[in-house]
């Protein structure tokens, strides 16, 4: 099936000068190459690999495209996480201070002290969260770079 339709498309495209745009140009190139060499034989592995990598790239692009909004809401979640962590540390610090004050009768000194400690704890937590998110983002970037590199390597070996 594929063998039949494939050279046909390759022959047709040069007929319309407007048509062979970005994706098409390569297709015709590969197609003509294989029809020129031996029209009755199976498409060579090289041409097949070429088409496969092209289709993969197209698929990858369409898969990547709609993640923009998801990435944005992931960023929103990270921001929300940091905000909640700061507030939680302040509330816990203030709560401890308030309870100790009630217990020891030292209003308002322990509340003030623990509020400050809570703020420090909040910033500490945020700092750690930032480091953790950083590490995760770096990991993701590295994984993506490795993937990209593997892809270009594969393309290089095609030629």
């Amino acid at each position: 099936m594929v063998r039949r339709t494939w050279p046909a498309a390759a022959v047709q495209t040069p007929g319309f000068p407007g048509l062979p745009s970005v994706g098409r140009g390569r297709e015709t190139e590969g197609g003509r190459g294989l029809s020129d060499s031996d029209p009755d034989r199976e498409p060579s592995l090289d041409a097949l690999r070429h088409r496969l990598s092209e289709a993969k790239a197209k698929h990858e692009r369409s898969r990547r495209a709609p993640t923009g909004s998801i990435e944005r809401s992931e960023g929103m979640a990270a921001g929300f996480r940091v905000a909640v962590e700061l507030t939680a540390a302040l509330v816990v610090g203030g709560g401890i201070g308030y309870v100790l004050d009630q217990w020891l009768g030292t209003q308002p000194w322990l509340l003030i002290l623990f509020f400050v400690i809570g703020a420090a704890a909040g910033f500490l937590t945020i700092y750690r969260t930032g480091q953790e998110l950083d590490a995760r983002a770096r990991e993701r970037r590295e994984a993506e770079a490795a993937e990209q590199k593997a892809k270009t390597d594969r393309k290089g070996s095609d030629r």
Binding site: F80, R81, V84, E85, T87, A88, A89, V91, V92, G93, I96, F114, I117, G118, A120, A121, G122, L124, T125
Partner: peptide, 25 residues
Amino acid sequence: VILVPVELVSYLSRPVSLSVRLFAN
């Protein structure tokens, strides 16, 4: 003197932030 209370409060605030985040969302 400074670090232990700060770390302690940071540790104790974990269940609060964990629960508040889910609940608030």
